[in-house]
Design a protein around this nucleic acid. Structure first.
Lengths: 221, 221
DNA sequence: TTCGCCCTCCTACCTCGGTAGGAGGCAGCG
DNA sequence: CGCTGCCTCCTACCGAGGTAGGAGGGCGAA
């Protein structure tokens, strides 16, 4: 009754790493591997794994579209998305695509294992019901259409968002980024509109619920 | 090379539960138990466990003071504090006492196991560096003195704090709790002052960093 | 070059959030 | 009994946050 895993990543070294890591766990078994998105969809249909470990950046078909197709074929499938960057607009896409959770590639191995077990147990990742709320929020988008048109945040908007998520005021963010408070306001307005949020408070909640960031150096003050 | 655990809880049923739960894990071993704080300090010194599972409410010596003494005797000790309530002012005390993390007693077992493994691996709990920041923040308090005088939040203040942490506005909180917006403001002012925070945004950050809450039903709107 | 996007900054405006300070009711305690 | 703490609500004030709308410069694509 072990947890059956499909590993989908285009780098064979990475797949080997996961095989090694997961091989050491008695309750986890890698039953299949895929090196691109199409293969992942195919093998998910054939092997019906309990959890799909899905890299986002893959040839043929990226992890997001692959996730969508897997979920379309089997609504009960569990996909755990692997991301490289701390704050990545792909995260939103992944959640909308139906992923059960996501893990940073340079998280400690224990976290990946914990994530797999939690997802396999039917919970969404990291904060059980929390992530579900995020998923719901992003599932019922303001615009019912919007195919792949989810507006992405720009670099600068991400910079500001990160600092907002740490609780900084607009003035503090300005000092931190060497821009005026006015400019900070501009960026924040854009962030809020793009994400469909009301104010910075909701932005903080979202950032933390979805674990969209990892803390690095703190402001100079 | 399994993880060696000391379970400190005054209720033998609870201890038995942990023994059962942890006994099923191949990499975890319960090496000692304690039914009060003094015993916990004593056994921690004698057994040098990798992780101490520490209940807060205990006779003789509570979990907070026990944690302080254990850390005083061995700065490398890892204490994982168990709390019953989602948002408990003890959490702050626990962090200040040097706890590596904390877990809710009614969290799913997987989370406890994950927490133990993470703490044993030397990381602070749930969000690696994040909790460290919280600890730092509470270690260097505004007032160097303040012995046990950390002001506690009242029931109602906790209610409000919880909703703030979910991103609700004052008006929404008022509707949710059937009180006026003015009253909400009063409570929030008190919460901020007691916790030494600037505004609700910082409150949200704190709540999420320290994982002070668990999400339950969402507002009716 | 022209178009568009991004980043920067501005004024003006208004709402929301937080502070200050007071007030009444209610319950527990010495 | 009076004291204290908690919860409730109020007015008044003001600063921070968010919106609206415009503007200029840089840079890359068409």
């Amino acid at each position: 009754m072990s947890i059956r895993i499909l590993v989908a990543d285009d780098q064979s070294m990475v797949r080997a790493g996961f095989r090694m890591l997961l091989g050491g766990e008695p309750d986890i078994e890698v039953v299949a591997e895929a090196s691109n998105g199409l293969e992942a969809v195919d093998k998910a249909a054939r092997f019906h794994p309990d959890v799909v470990l899905m890299d986002i950046r893959m040839p043929e078909l990226d992890g997001l579209e692959a996730t969508r197709r897997i979920l379309a074929a089997d609504a009960d499938a569990r996909v755990l998305v692997l991301t490289t960057f701390d704050l990545d607009e792909y995260v939103y896409e992944a959640l909308r695509a139906g992923a059960s959770g996501f893990v940073l590639k340079d998280d400690p191995p224990e976290q990946l294992l914990a994530a797999i077990r939690i997802v396999a147990a039917g919970e969404a990742l990291l904060s059980p019901a929390i992530t579900k709320r995020v998923i719901e929020r992003f599932t019922r988008l303001p615009r019912p259409e919007a195919p792949r048109g989810l507006e992405e945040l720009t670099e600068r908007e991400l910079d500001v968002f990160r600092l907002v998520a740490r609780g900084l005021s607009n003035a503090e963010i300005g000092k931190e980024l060497f821009i005026s408070e006015t400019t900070v306001k501009t960026h924040i307005t854009h962030v809020l509109r793009k994400l469909g949020l009301r104010d910075r408070v909701q932005a903080v909640v979202l950032a933390h619920e979805a674990a969209l960031f990892e803390p690095d150096e703190r402001p100079a003050g």
